[in-house]
Amino acid sequence: MRHIISILMENEPGALSRVVGLFAQRNYNIETLNVAPTEDPSLSRLTVTTVGDDRVIEQITKHLNKLIDVVKLVDLTEGNHIERELMLVKVKALGAARDEVKRTADIFRAQIVDVTASLYTVQITGDAGKLDAFLQAMAPIGILEVARTGVSGIARGDKVLSL
């Protein structure tokens, strides 16, 4: 099963490599990875999506917790949560396709953020499924480049991941 694990870790050199290294070293999967500092400059938030059965996920969270740089973590998929990913796509936009891309972007509530004579750059936010669906819709027209941020997420309701 797919899990989204969000980690608060020390914003220090080497911390990221310890997390990533752990996955490689213990033969765990990383599907997506997303990391940036938080409002507290001493902390970074890292969100990783991974796949594994309950036993594997239990080991992953235990080993992550053991890392000295990891301060706190939560498996967002254990409860209700909001999951978002941002994607920038360059698609061919010539002739009839120019309108088609615009219409599809509107349907997906995506925005066209850059334009040239021959292509559109589209920005779209959503969960991974929505982004995949948009790519599928664009495929016949011609996708030139894709940049995805990887999943970021937060729990619904009053639950807060903080120190």
Binding site: R55, E58, Q59, K62, H63, N65, K66
Partner: peptide
């Protein structure tokens, strides 16, 4: 003492 040792290979 190490939580990751518990149930690692045998539940």
């Amino acid at each position: 003492i190490d939580p990751s040792s518990v149930s690692k290979t045998v539940r």
